[in-house]
Amino acid sequence: MRDAGARRVGMLVQAIGVAGLLVACGGDAEGASHPDGSPADGSGARISGEVTVLAAASLTEPFETLGERLADRYPDLEVTFSFGPSSGLAEQAAAGAPADVLATANTVTMDTAVQAGVVDGTPRVFARNTLALAVPAGNPGNVTGPADLARDELRVAVCEPRVPCGAAAEALLDRAGVEAAPDTLTTDVKEAVSLVSLGEVDAALVYLTDAAAAGDAVETVDVPRAGAVVNDYPVAVMADAPNPDGAHAVVDAVTGELGRDVLAEAGFLEP
């Protein structure tokens, strides 16, 4: 019995260990991408090394494209993106995350990083974005406008009020005089878009660009005067950037012609 008891305790200890592991692995919601670093004509060869970019989730598609184009321009530069909610990224930056560049989906979140003194110089606005009402293909909930977000029988997703897409959604709903009844508050805009494309919600307020990036699974419904609520996207080099030259090269690309083209293609507005 003694031996059996010991084994039982051993199993429990093991089980607790596994529990700890699972808890530790539970909250990883970061996306990262590595540009392939394909060879090119060799211009700007002095820019090299790794650059880590913290970027708003809504910038996922254009920045990944930008990363590929940058690999052509600077073959020795390796740009890694970490996409997430701007407020969380700004907080990471303020807490001293070893990043080179920060790009957020509104100025409020960028201000957090500026006030923490972790940003080099003044952030530059490089793009603007507006909201759209995204519905699954075929619009199963017959959503015709923001007023439908108050319908109780509909499943609705809106971003957390403290992340930029949520702040914008709140502003838009306020203007429209709609008391929305969301069923879930997502921590970033991409989560809301995937709920729409899965058909798990009937409608979500997301950025126009994200609705467009989602492809055929997502349709948009016109929002009257959606243009009245606009998010400015600022970008900045981090004060303690491990690779300041690389960081400035990336920011120049984002704010320059390359960035303008890629962002316009994705549906962003010019600043």
Binding site: P85, S87, E91, T109, E160, D183, T184, L185
Partner: peptide, 29 residues
């Protein structure tokens, strides 16, 4: 955390449990 936020979403009082609330808090600064 993981299964809950993926399957049940996150809404105060209905599905937002303590770990989700912690994640929302850190995510929103």
């Amino acid at each position: 955390f993981g299964a809950t936020v993926t399957f049940a979403g996150s809404f105060p009082g209905t599905t937002r449990t303590l770990p989700l609330q912690a994640y929302v808090a850190i995510g929103s600064g």
